[in-house]
Design a protein around this nucleic acid. Structure first.
Length: 315
DNA sequence: ACGGATTCCTGATGGC
DNA sequence: TGCCATCAGGAATCCG
């Protein structure tokens, strides 16, 4: 299921394929997959240029413009810098261009981006001209060179919407979205965990911190030595700082391996990620702890399947 | 107001 | 082999 590292990878692998191209048609094959107030026909009528791609939390953005912009060099990969302070990145035709492009436009109603939430099974691929829709294709963006961007989503939970400054103000999810884990200080992170809710429930809450899902919640808690059910406010500043550092470490390591492919997730080039081979906790309930050799415990925390080591992780 | 439970959806999986 | 029940999961919504 695409979380922060997977969405970042999709943004990075999508950009060289579509930057500089105009969207000339938007086909919505499943009504529920398109949200928001701006209609798909409205976007198509603008014939917008895709300036670049990026991410905020688990939201994937295609940044749009009315002005032409250059095409990327043929067949070149976008290098990814190591500095955590640069995230989230903006991937444009020339590679990594800036920290984060503005979503503001000339007017409040100007459509300045398409936002995709992939949820569990959403995928974005670029196909040659005339490729017909597949069984799970929900939205197709036709580009000016004939190629087609497919939004495939088996479970129909994913969604796309056209974003304008005025539209953003009416989008609850966007307004409540918490800060990026890669942009916060340890202190700012710790300050958001003063609730009595389970620390895992807080990690999964997008208004507390943006981009974490079940995989990176379990993995960061394991690496920080914290049991998932522990109330946030029972944890010391030091342990929360350790959790923040573990989270950043695991997110960056996963981005470095193009994310985790459990079942459906693929990059925008159709490749699987490799970080699923580095899991210590997620999906390993009942198996042997890779650190101490004891059996990993399983349970449900915050309504999610959860695995942890009763020896390596403490309340 | 807060937080836990339920709901949406469909493919994969396991038991009989 | 085939069928049915169960599970997975993010976030909106329902409910106590």
């Amino acid at each position: 299921m695409p979380e922060l590292p997977e969405v970042e990878t999709v943004a990075r692998t999508l950009a060289p394929q579509i930057c500089g191209r105009r969207i000339v048609a938007v086909e919505v094959l499943n009504r529920g997959s398109w949200q928001g107030t701006a209609a798909p026909e409205e976007v198509a009528a603008l014939r917008p240029v895709i300036r670049g791609t990026g991410r905020r939390g688990k939201l994937l953005f295609l940044y749009l413009s009315q002005k032409a912009c250059p095409l990327p060099p043929e067949g070149e990969e976008i290098p990814v810098p190591d500095e955590a302070s640069l995230w989230p990145l903006f991937y444009g035709a020339q590679g990594v261009e800036q920290g984060r492009p503005p979503l503001e436009g000339e007017s409040p109603d100007e459509v300045t981006a398409l936002a995709f939430h992939l949820r569990m099974t959403g995928r974005l691929f670029v196909y040659p001209a005339d490729t017909p829709a597949e069984k799970h294709t929900r939205i197709i963006l036709d580009l000016d060179d004939g190629r087609r961007v497919f939004f495939d989503d088996a479970r129909k939970f994913g969604q796309a919407r056209a974003v304008s400054p005025a539209g953003l103000e009416q989008w609850d999810f966007w307004k409540k979205l918490g800060p990026e884990p890669l942009e916060m200080t340890d202190e700012a992170f710790a300050a958001r965990f003063s609730s009595g809710r389970a620390v895992k429930a807080l990690l999964l809450d997008q208004s507390v911190v943006a981009g974490v899902g079940n995989i990176y919640a379990d993995e960061s808690l394991f690496r920080a030595g914290i049991r998932p059910g522990t109330p946030g406010r029972a944890l010391s500043r030091q342990r929360l700082a350790k959790l923040h550092r573990a989270l950043v470490e695991v997110l960056l390591a996963s981005i470095g391996e193009c994310g985790s492919s459990i079942r459906d997730y693929r990059t925008a080039r159709g490749d699987v990620g490799a970080f699923q081979n580095r899991f210590f906790a997620y999906g390993r309930a009942g198996k042997t702890c890779l650190v101490c050799g004891r059996k990993l415990q399983s349970g449900r925390v915050a309504g999610r399947a959860t695995a942890w080591c009763p020896h390596c992780q403490k309340d």
